[in-house]
Design a protein around this nucleic acid. Sequence first.
DNA 1: TATATATCTACCTAATTGGTAGAATTAGTA
DNA 2: TACTAATTCTACCAATTAGGTAGATATATA
Lengths: 137, 137
Amino acid sequence: MMSKKCKYAIKALIRLAENYGKDYLLTADIAKQANIPKKFLEQILLELKRAGYLGSKQGFGGGYYLKVHPKKITVADIYRLFDGAIALVPCVAVKYYERCDDCRDEKICLLREEFLKIKDKTRDVMKKSTILSFIKK
Amino acid sequence: MMSKKCKYAIKALIRLAENYGKDYLLTADIAKQANIPKKFLEQILLELKRAGYLGSKQGFGGGYYLKVHPKKITVADIYRLFDGAIALVPCVAVKYYERCDDCRDEKICLLREEFLKIKDKTRDVMKKSTILSFIKK
DNA sequence: TATATATCTACCTAATTGGTAGAATTAGTA
DNA sequence: TACTAATTCTACCAATTAGGTAGATATATA
């Protein structure tokens, strides 16, 4: 399961994508339409902005807009941003690689090869699914 | 990522599978070989037994053995047992279905269809990977 | 009877999740 | 200049989950 934060992020991105190339959207409006607690959404939009997906403007007439084309943003990207590694075990993660602390020797680990395959495949699935996929039906 | 509990369960199952059709294995020995805290492993083996994968015998000369053929036990099964739903959102889960509490109307939900596809595919991947897959190389 | 084993129940600590609160900053408008 | 509307920043918080530990009990064998 993904965290609510991640789900909210995707919902917000969908809303912003529907408005792609148009005007600014207000946090309050997105929150209302997507049914997300406003103060929580603030943090999420900020994170999305820092990650380069959104632009914003402060003050009267301000808000958020989508900077990146909806087809360029994948579920894998957003999942990694909010929930971390896609891999089932840390030792086969790409962006979040870590040694497994119960592993004596990675080279002879029985789990690694198989989990690597699983990760590659699920990553492919999540990469093929973009924000645009959610909109066009 | 899967929980350590789930990972430990898979490691233990692999060990037990290597011994499939032979004698009993001791919790202490599995714990040592697979580098798992013994008391923690006890709980895990008990859960696996209750789920029907293992048989056991108490007392001197006792221990655990694998009841089900290693090729019949999938990563999806064990993941579901210890970590719950494979789906990214509760509303597309099979065994763990729940309404999303931020969802106004499931029928017109933009997320559902796409997340359903993702779940079906990742579930397939995890179902093709069995305990036997980890052993034969 | 002594010992070795699984089984059961309870407990614990730290991190994470899913938020809330409120002040500061920035920009437009009257 | 003062007001207001918006993002941005920092701190906090309660409940849950993760990852265990501790100790007693039941059961089987030698």
